[in-house]
């Protein structure tokens, strides 16, 4: 009886996971041109690919300065995605998330790091000061490779252009953390805000549009564009 339960559980899990990954698993290479490489899972090595290869959800694809590739995503409906030159995209991002899934992901981003203080023992004393914790000076380390950053942002653009707004927004937010300098870019901030809007998270989109207004050096056209989208997200006034 117990073994039946385990088998049933495994079947449920398999169906569940299959349903969750159907989009990402269904990505194949339709055509390829120039310098195109792929990285499997968490490895560091880039390898070449060929036409007809089926990509795994944990793969990352990259095109060189003169490379391009056309992917076929088995989404509903099937979508053909062209990666132009100088683009890096995670295959797992070539999929549609529901607004609820996107909302949960964003919520998890916000609550990360907020679980330190246990809620079950409010009276327990907690040390607020830790002596000697940061005695080391900031390291003289190199920042993340900006070339990779450009490729990844180009990948974000590809996601946006192909309607993968949820993963576009999430990836954009991740890149802001890895490449903080890009946070001051109107175009990149706008694409994230627009993705949130098109993913039907109007509140988050409004917050992002409002935040972009505080960027220095915005042109009148940019301000006008922001105002237009803010009004659009807010909806007609009653």
């Amino acid at each position: 009886m117990k073994s039946y339960a385990r088998v049933l559980g495994a079947i449920i899990l398999a169906v569940f996971l299959a349903a969750a990954t159907v989009c990402a698993q269904g990505v194949s290479i339709q055509s390829i041109q120039g310098d195109v490489s792929i990285r499997h899972g968490v490895t560091e090595q880039w390898t070449t690919v060929a036409r007809g290869d089926v990509l795994k959800p944990d793969d990352t694809m990259k095109t060189g300065p003169r490379g391009s590739v056309v992917l076929l995503a088995a989404t509903q409906p099937q979508r053909r995605i062209t990666l132009p030159a100088n683009v890096m995209v995670d295959v797992a991002d070539i999929r549609d998330l529901t607004p609820e899934e996107l909302m949960l992901k964003l919520t998890m981003e916000k609550v990360r790091g907020s679980s330190y203080r246990p809620t079950d023992d409010p009276a327990a004393p907690n040390a607020a000061v830790v002596h000697g914790a940061n005695r080391e000076q900031a390291p003289a380390l190199a920042e993340n490779d900006p070339v990779s950053g450009v490729q990844e942002w180009n990948g974000v653009r590809v996601l946006f252009d192909n309607g993968f707004y949820s993963t576009c927004a999430l990836k954009g937010m991740e890149l802001f953390r890895l490449y903080p300098d890009t946070h001051g870019s109107f175009d990149r901030r706008f694409i994230v805000a627009r993705s949130l809007e098109l993913a039907r998270l109007r509140g988050e989109a409004l917050d992002e549009y409002t935040s972009i207004q505080e960027l220095a050096g915005l042109t009148p056209d940019q301000r006008s564009l922001l105002a237009q989208h803010i009004n659009q997200v807010r909806g007609p006034s009653k």
């Binding site: 990285r39 899972g41 968490v42 490895t43 560091e44 944990d58 990352t60 995670d90 990360r112 790091g113 907020s114 330190y116 390291p139 380390l141 190199a142 920042e143 993340n144 490779d145 990779s148 991740e174 953390r177 890895l178 490449y179 903080p180």
Partner: peptide
């Protein structure tokens, strides 16, 4: 304890690490 902007000093592949806030509220 490493700031995400220096993450490539640990790994080029961002799938090898997780960016999250620590107990100081810093990512």
């Amino acid at each position: 304890g490493l700031d995400p902007r220096f993450a490539s000093n640990i790994a080029q592949n961002s799938k090898r690490y997780v960016v999250r806030k620590n107990h100081e509220g810093r990512e």
